[in-house]
Amino acid sequence: MVFSLFSSKNRIINLVLNDHSIRYVELKQSNPPAAQKWGERFLTPGIIEDGKIVDIDSLTNILEECVDDWKIHRRSIRFIVPDQLVIIRKVNVPAEIQDDELMGYLYLELGSTIHLPFEEPVFDFYPLGDNGKTKELLLFAAPEQNVMEYSHLFSSVKLKPVAADISPLSLYRLYHKLELAEENETLFTIQFALTSVNLSIFEGAVPVVMRPFALPFNIEKWDIKRDHFGLAKCKYTGDTNELAGQFGDIFREISKLIDYYRYTLNHENHDITKFLLTGDHPMLQAIEDDLKERFGLPVGRITLAMNSTEKMENIPDQLLLPLGLALKEVK
Results as ranks from 00 to 15, higher is better:
L231R: 05
S8L: 09
E120L: 05
P282M: 11
T278I: 14
D290Q: 14
K37F: 11
D165E: 13
E96D: 13
F251H: 12
K225L: 10
P32L: 07
R294K: 12
P32H: 06
T303I: 12
F247E: 07
K37Q: 08
A95Q: 04
V54L: 11
V157K: 03
L102A: 01
K256D: 05
F188L: 10
I258F: 04
L319S: 03
V206R: 15
S170L: 08
Y263H: 08
E203Y: 11
Y150S: 00
L59Y: 02
I53C: 00
E179N: 12
E183D: 13
K28T: 07
H152S: 15
F6D: 12
L138A: 01
H115E: 12
L243T: 04
K292P: 10
G324L: 12
K331N: 08
N218F: 03
A326P: 02
I87H: 08
V147N: 01
L102R: 07
F123W: 04
H176F: 13
K311S: 11
Q285N: 15
E288V: 09
L5T: 07
I258K: 10
I114G: 02
I287M: 14
I48Q: 01
S200C: 02
V197R: 13
K256M: 09
F79I: 04
L106S: 03
G296L: 03
L17V: 12
E253Y: 14
L319E: 01
Q246E: 09
R173G: 08
D239S: 14
G324I: 05
L102N: 01
W222Q: 06
I166N: 04
L199H: 06
V208T: 08
F251I: 10
S58I: 03
P32R: 05
E40D: 03
G132M: 01
A286S: 15
L265V: 14
G248I: 09
D227Y: 03
G39L: 05
T278E: 14
Q145D: 00
Y175E: 07
L108C: 04
N198K: 15
F213G: 11
K233P: 06
L304V: 09
H281C: 09
L63Y: 12
D68K: 11
E220Y: 13
L325H: 09
E242D: 14
E101A: 13
L174T: 10
N184C: 05
P282Y: 06
V299F: 05
G248M: 05
L17Q: 09
R252A: 11
